[in-house]
Design a protein around this nucleic acid. Structure first.
Lengths: 241, 241
DNA sequence: AATGGTCCAATGGTCGGACCACCGGACCAA
DNA sequence: TTGGTCCGGTGGTCCGACCATTGGACCATT
């Protein structure tokens, strides 16, 4: 058991990822106008001094993010990311410019506070015994898990129980941030205790099939967490001046 | 002016897209277990009788959807789409199996009813004069637009005005469905009128900076639309028996 | 003048084959 | 047991070629 904590496994980059970032930046900074035609794959390959295949992989990713439209026999055109940009784009933007991080986290928490309670509401209505079993397994027998991991799993089970796949995929999105920034909340031991209480309470509410109660419990904990983390960010911001 | 309506521009497929679908299906149907190692790129290329580059482009897309994890020097591994699947995955799943369409649309509408009002609330708070101007441009001078297009733009401007990028990207996601299935609602001329009224009312509320009113207006229209469309789907389902 | 057909150069899509970078396991030495 | 070395396999990149599709220029028909 070492005290050394590795936050992330040192994402080393692919060349195609670099190309992707370059183009992504140009698009988000509006250096490439909406509707503008990108240079041809062959030109990009020549100018960036990489192979055309590499350029193609990068363009493919940008297409996945709905940032460009590729037309066979014609070319690639810039789309308006404000009109078509996907959720994943948000992560890409943070990757490119850390300064937006705090704002995005705040937006995320606010958002979570809105949908979380409804998710819990539906979970209490639609849950099956399997969901309860899974919950109890995590809460009672999850001693080898960190509080953050437990919390993520509890929310995940609730999302599954809600029966609405949107809650599930949305939560998956949140979790990618939780894994990176969850420590902002769980560093405080008081919040760890709060989380343990929350897991037990929401478990009971969902088990009993009490949608209103489940919603309120979720509402309270998320509202508190939102406030706590935003305060933390605010302090960090002030001390950085 | 022709009466012929082109719903979509005839998406023709890339070979890499076909490969993507094949693998996507295998993963979603759990034919490939979570954690399982995929065949190597060279094997897939040989077995599917395509070039390795083509396989790579397909795998890259699956990686974008967070369905597989590709490790340099090792291989590609199946991830649990229930834990990591992104929003875009939902669209991919519908593409693969139309039967899920109605359920997803219902989930979508429910979801929209929850977040839409909050979006309007924040929009009324944070809107600038530019947003109002854009709104009025669409509502008053958008005579060449269909009601569906107007509606999409109005919501888009409200999302922009909310100042929370999550609302914006989420709405972009909704809109991809609106474009395909909006007719389920706007086929009814009564709903077209309702929409025109809504645009005017929400415009006023946002312009006045009345968050509570904006929320209520949005709440009402979305709740009604949800009910209307779900009823339509239900009828369709019954008559199909 | 407008329409439709034909051709052509440019561009994205696919191919095959090669080499580089990296990982995991086997083996060995301290 | 630990750490080092080697090696086969795998993903990442590269090269050069050809196929499929597009848009525009040109022309013939109406």
């Amino acid at each position: 058991m070492s005290a050394l904590i590795l936050t992330r496994p040192l994402m080393r980059s692919r060349l195609s990822g670099e190309i992707e970032n370059i183009l992504l930046t140009s698009i988000i900074k509006r250096q490439l106008a909406v509707g503008e035609k990108l240079p041809t794959e062959r030109e990009l390959a020549r100018d960036l001094e990489v192979n055309r295949s590499t350029v193609r992989e990068a363009l493919g990713k940008l297409e996945s993010l709905d940032l460009v439209e590729i037309r066979h026999g014609d070319g690639a055109y810039v789309k308006d990311f404000q009109e078509s940009g996907s959720l994943e784009l948000i992560r890409a933007m943070i990757r490119l410019d850390e300064r937006q991080r705090d704002d995005v986290i705040a937006a995320l928490l606010e958002f979570r506070t809105i949908i979380g309670p409804e998710m819990a509401f539906h979970a209490a209505r639609n849950r099956t015994d399997d969901h309860i079993e899974a919950l109890e397994e995590v809460i009672w027998n999850g001693n080898d898990l960190s509080t953050l991991e437990k919390d993520i799993r509890v929310h995940h089970i609730i999302a599954l129980a809600s029966g609405n796949i949107l809650y599930l995929t949305l939560l998956n999105f949140f979790n990618k941030f939780m894994i990176e920034y969850g420590h902002l909340y769980f560093n405080d031991q008081e919040n760890v205790k709060r989380s343990v209480r929350f897991h037990e309470e929401i478990h009971q509410a969902v088990k009993k099939g009490n949608p209103g109660l489940a919603r309120k419990i979720m509402q309270d904990v998320l509202t508190y967490a939102q406030k706590a983390v935003v305060d933390t960010l605010q302090i960090g911001r002030n001390s950085r001046r």
